[in-house]
Amino acid sequence: MSSSNRKIKRHGFSVRFVHWTVAISTFLLIFSGFGQLPLYKRYMVDQLPLLGWTSNFGVTLMIHYIAAIALSFAVVYHIVFHVIRKEYDILPKRGDFKESVQIIMAMLGKGEEPENDKYLAEQRLAYAFIGVSLLLILVTGHIKVLKNLQTVTFPDSILGLATTLHNVATFMVLFGIIGHLAAFIFKENRALLPGIFTGEIDEEYAKKRHSKWYNRLNKQDRFNISG
């Protein structure tokens, strides 16, 4: 078998589970959240086939709550899992802004791309941005859930702040997702896509584009190569 067909393990089950739980729950949260604004009656989305339920606040609020349960579970799972395993490859490093520019310029055919670790510099920055946005949305969302309980009251100033930050964080997450998906406009990044579905990426690609990570794995002998 030629080495070009060999695969290398990039993500385990936990990483893929967290990624897709966050992705699906966030999509549901954004969709149901916009329904709470309210939006779907005004824009007559509820008149489209099969979408009559979208203007029912009872339905969209329940979707919002259930998706928030999934998101809370996944985010805490993610933090605890990687802290125990001491895996911090995705956290931003000094010089990531400069390096991101370098990588993007290289993809546009200007200059050399730096040697990359497991994640590209812009991936680390995007992770931090989306991560902070999600934490903000979770904390403020929990405050909003608690205040709905009959026995819980918050000062108006805290509720006003939580509401505003929740709304601002929604747009931060939206921009983050758009940026995340826009990365795949570049052909060079597309070889990473299978990793989040199957957990594996092409070994040749890893060797070439993520050489720091590849070499480290090589030294640690932690390859999990399948043909």
């Binding site: 709550y65 805490v76 709905n148």
Partner: peptide, 26 residues
């Protein structure tokens, strides 16, 4: 909605336990 609010408060704790188990196992 308030009936399922408890789930939202339990979810982070459940997430932490599940992650602990998964991390140690792997």
């Amino acid at each position: 909605p308030n009936g399922v609010a408890a789930g939202m408060l339990i979810a982070p704790v459940a997430g932490a336990f599940a992650a602990g188990y998964a991390a140690v196992k792997t």
